[in-house]
């Protein structure tokens, strides 16, 4: 267990009892993870592979069956660990009779933000989540994307060192999720550690420094995104004005050097890029 880790998980197992007969369901199976500080860490995996359960155990909201966890050097579930951690739950839901601003204020108070800094902390968090204006409306009137963003604001209002986001972009349009990606990067630039779960692999690839993939409660892969994804045996060359003659010449030249062209295609822009080119932004923003 290195002191440098933001989160250290060792041999974590969680069994849920389901049904009246108390059958056991193993949601997390002997998981070991070291999440370094100051990076964006993505936890991936299919539905029901135990991502949310792992995050809840890390936060001390669910008790593990066995295993050891520490957050920023503290045992999880201690008040000092939580003081330094912010959490956005999956499909967040908040007291709907509060306004967004009141909610963030409550969370700031419960997290021990000093009264003298309360106003500035709340406004800063709302501004970062671009919820300053919508902050005066009650949460009952919020769209899904606004719920996610107010959830982000309440998670970071006390300036935590570690931010844990469970599917922060679920139900958010691409422009909104790009904005959330930006917020995550600005957290990292301030030296914070961000851990997130997501099913949007394209976005995870852009946002995360490291990823881990889980399947049926087990860890199947962990590493730096560029190391995991790079195919060091192949290369891509992008060319403009490629005439058939030029193509033939290039292929011949490469062949002469012993290289071998396996495919020539048009690069496609992603649907996401196209969408963002055409659409200006959500009305909520």
């Amino acid at each position: 267990m290195s002191a440098n880790s933001a989160i250290s998980v060792q041999g974590l197992t969680k069994d849920f009892r389901v049904g009246i007969r108390g059958l056991k369901l193993r949601a997390v199976d002997n998981l070991c993870l070291e999440i370094p500080r100051g990076q964006v860490f993505g936890l991936l995996g299919p539905n029901g592979c135990g991502k949310s359960t792992t995050l809840k155990i890390i936060l001390g909201l669910v008790a593990p069956t066995s295993g050891k966890i520490s957050i920023l050097g503290y045992p999880s579930a201690t008040s000092s660990a939580r003081q330094r951690t912010g959490f956005l739950p999956e499909a967040p839901y908040f007291h709907k009779f509060l306004t967004g601003r009141e909610l963030v204020r409550y969370c700031a108070r419960l997290s021990g933000v000093a009264p003298s800094q309360l106003d500035s902390a709340v406004e800063e968090a709302l501004a970062l989540a671009s919820m300053s204006e919508a902050g005066n409306r009650t949460i009952a009137t919020y769209s899904k994307g606004m719920l996610q963003r107010i959830g982000f604001a309440q998670a970071i209002v006390h300036d935590p060192e570690l931010v844990i986001l469970d599917e922060p972009t679920a139900g958010v349009d691409p422009v909104g999720s790009a904005a959330i990606g930006k917020m995550i990067h600005s957290m990292r630039d301030k030296g914070k550690t961000v851990v997130l779960c997501s099913h949007l692999l394209g976005q995870v690839e852009q946002v995360c420094d490291r990823i881990a993939i889980m399947d049926r409660g087990r860890l199947v892969l962990e590493g730096r995104v560029d190391e995991v994804l790079a195919r060091r045996d192949k290369h891509v060359i992008t060319v403009e004005h490629l005439t058939p003659a030029a193509q033939a010449a290039a292929e011949a030249a490469l062949q002469a050097q012993g290289a071998h062209v396996t495919s020539i295609t048009h690069p496609r822009r992603s649907l996401e890029d196209l969408f963002r080119e055409l659409v200006t932004g959500s009305r909520d923003a």
């Binding site: 809840k56 936060l59 909201l61 008040s79 000092s80 939580r82 003081q83 951690t85 959490f87 739950p89 499909a91 967040p92 839901y93 908040f94 007291h95 969370c107 419960l110 997290s111 021990g112 959830g151 309440q154």
Partner: peptide, 14 residues
Amino acid sequence: DNRTALTLLAKPVS
């Protein structure tokens, strides 16, 4: 049931 407890208990609230 509304999972609002999840948000509150993730704070330094025992």
